[in-house]
Amino acid sequence: MSLRAAFAEGRFAVSSEVGPPTGTDVSEMLETADMLHGRVDALNVTDNQAAVMRLSTIAACIHLKQHGHDPVFQVTCRDRNRLGLQSDLLGAASFGITEVLALTGDHVVVGDHPEAAAVFDLESVQLLDTVATLADGSDLAGNELTGSPEFFVGAVVTPDANPIRPQLAKFEKKVRSGARFFQTQAVYDAESFLRFMEYARQFDVRVLAGLVVPRSARMARFMNKNIPGITVPNAIIEELDASEDPVQTGVDVTGRFIREVREHCDGVHIMAIGAEHLVPRVLDAAGL
């Protein structure tokens, strides 16, 4: 299984994600992956997510690959310059890890090492170009590669960004730079998302709706206030507020959303954020 395979087969793709540990013990990460095995097409492996230091993404991808999983290698531009990025991409490819999500990455000042130098030698669009260049058989300096990788590369987009136009302009740049699929920032308002899909359908790309299960009204409000580009509609917050089992309500809400958008997008990307056990329940609720 992989995203590429799912899309090729015309299936509604399901992706989730795992975070590498802060340390060398990868057992918990592998247990989570095992738990999701069979229910998802791919597992995104985050890259020092939120600028918090973790075991290397590429190593985590290798572990997962060796345990029979299909990782999507998330690559951010925060921690490596163009040499590091290229060599890691080649390294990953050499292990057969070819599904890549190209991101700019959160700034170091929001993470746990705020004093660190933020690299950002390249950024997401340029990273996509880099991936394409490597795939064409040379590096950014024009040197010919001995064995060129084949990547299936994706990027991210925020359908609820405010303002939206600069976001869409960049989306189009990403398309031009070779992004084959997009994972969106968490979306909750189906109507709004479908509007975005109507726009996105002009382009030959696959779109996975990004999902974060709202586990409580408080969490929903927190996201509205603190996470750029996420808008949980009031109706959902009220529903969570009124619920005796808000986690179940969150699962239901997410499942309902998937059913509503299923015919109009190519899959979903469920960002579990430490509650991976809910992913199967969401998929159950969505009838997937």
Binding site: T104, A118, S124, N162, P166, Q167, P228
Partner: peptide, 15 residues
């Protein structure tokens, strides 16, 4: 802060 050359990152919120 990231010196991005091609457009806003996903972190933009209300401009």
């Amino acid at each position: 802060p990231k010196g991005i050359m091609n457009g806003p990152c996903g972190g933009v919120s209300d401009g």
